[in-house]
Amino acid sequence: MVSLAGEFTKGLWKDIPPFRLVLGLCPTLAVTKSCLNGLGMGMATVFVLVCSNIIVSMLRKVIPKKVRLASYIVIIASFVVIVELLTQAYVYSLYQALGIFIPLIVVNCIILGRAEAFASKNTVVRSALDGLGIGVGFMLSLGFLGAVREILGKGTLFEGSQYMIHVFGQSFEPFTFMVEAPGAFVCLGLLLGIMNVLGD
């Protein structure tokens, strides 16, 4: 019997996506050009994941087995549309930066995976904590990857906010490779390797 706190904390290290649970790679690679974009995407994912986990868990005894996936998809897609509308209305710059990856949260395998593997079998509180843990883990990973790529690729941190810092000073010649597509793949691959070393 895992404790309630355990449901939350497992997402932060033991099952942290995308490093341990290798899922949701597309948004991970696409939006981590800067730390803030990564965190923004992570927050949107947390919202969808927690809400859909709660609803799926509430309805777990009502939804017939044969149409469960279709029901989960409708529920998840609805929360994604809510995120789409809210980001457009309140944080338009984030909406522009994330582009098509906001609607694509719906096909993030992490979300459907948690609904099917966890929320459909557990109580509402446990499902909410599970969603929060995995979601926050995902958000921190995206923020971390974004920070690494931004620091090396642009020499800044938190670009786009008033807290922007030039990590290596103004004269730093940026390693542009890191903010381009190839850098995303290589950076994530190497971080995965480092995580494997730390995990052993």
């Binding site: 691959g189 995965l192 494997n196």
Partner: peptide, 23 residues
């Protein structure tokens, strides 16, 4: 291949180099 990089990690690095070629 070094053990920590086996599997997905080396796959991603390869994809990165391939992406560089496509540049």
């Amino acid at each position: 291949i070094p053990r920590p990089l086996q599997g997905t990690a080396i796959g991603l690095v390869t994809a990165g180099l391939m992406a560089l070629a496509f540049f």
